[in-house]
Structure formats: C-alpha cells, structure tokens
Design a protein around this nucleic acid. Structure first.
Length: 104
DNA sequence: ACGCTGACTGGGT
DNA sequence: CACCCAGCCAGCG
C-alpha cells in the first residue's frame, strides 16, 4: 500500500494513469486493491495526488471520496487536464504508465 | 463462515 | 462509445 502511494506521487502533473496500470506495475492481485489503498492513503495524508488516478475509461470514479465531489476535477483542470462530463478528454495521450519510471 | 459492496478490468455485443 | 457479464480481493455486518 505504501507502494501505491509512492507510484501515485510519481505521476507527473497534467498526466493521469489508471488503477489497472498501477495494479499491474506492482503486481497486485486486482485493480480494486489500488482504489482501496488510495482511499486509505488519502484519508491519512491528503498530500497524495490521487486525483491523477482514474479508471480505464478516464472517468473520475473516485471523486466522491474527496472533500467535495468536485475537488478531483478542479485539481485536474488546475494542472491543465480537460475534464468533461466526469471524463478526462484526450485520455489516450494524457495517460501515463508507471513503467515510465523504469525508463528514466 | 457467508454474502454484499466497491476509487476495477477485459472481452463480447 | 455504451452496456452487460464474469473474475477479482479486502472489509464489513
């Protein structure tokens, strides 16, 4: 679960990744665990950029777990990410894979 | 122990 | 792109 937080903190501003990508990168059993870990992490710290983690379709499925249901979208747009109808526009190009970490 | 639920996903339609 | 379905696994009543 610390791993999930670590990876999440490495997501570049203006980019997003998916639960599944993180789950696969950390070889967790399922993507649900990532959401669970983030929920725990956010409750504890709050300095976690969890708003950069969305589901496979680029939807802000976790917005209801933030202080307000609009926090996630606002943080994303503050970084230049266009969100329309609870979905990240241009998701394919905005997507960032944790594997990029191995490439640096 | 059991069944439900959920920040999920891949595959098929 | 949207919907449905079957796996997925930890937490909770």
């Amino acid at each position: 679960m610390e791993d999930v937080r670590a990876v999440t903190r490495h997501i570049p501003p203006g980019r997003v990744t998916t639960y599944g990508a993180i789950a696969e990168f950390l070889t967790l059993g399922s993507a649900r665990m990532v959401g669970w870990a983030l929920f725990q992490g956010v409750s504890l710290t709050d300095d976690l950029p969890a708003h950069r983690v969305v589901n496979r379709r680029g939807e802000l499925s976790g917005r209801n777990h933030f202080s307000t249901p609009t926090t996630m979208q606002e943080r994303l747009e503050a970084e230049g990410v266009v969100v329309r109808n609870d979905r990240v526009e241009d998701f394919a190009t905005r997507f960032w894979s944790p594997n990029e970490l191995l490439n640096l």
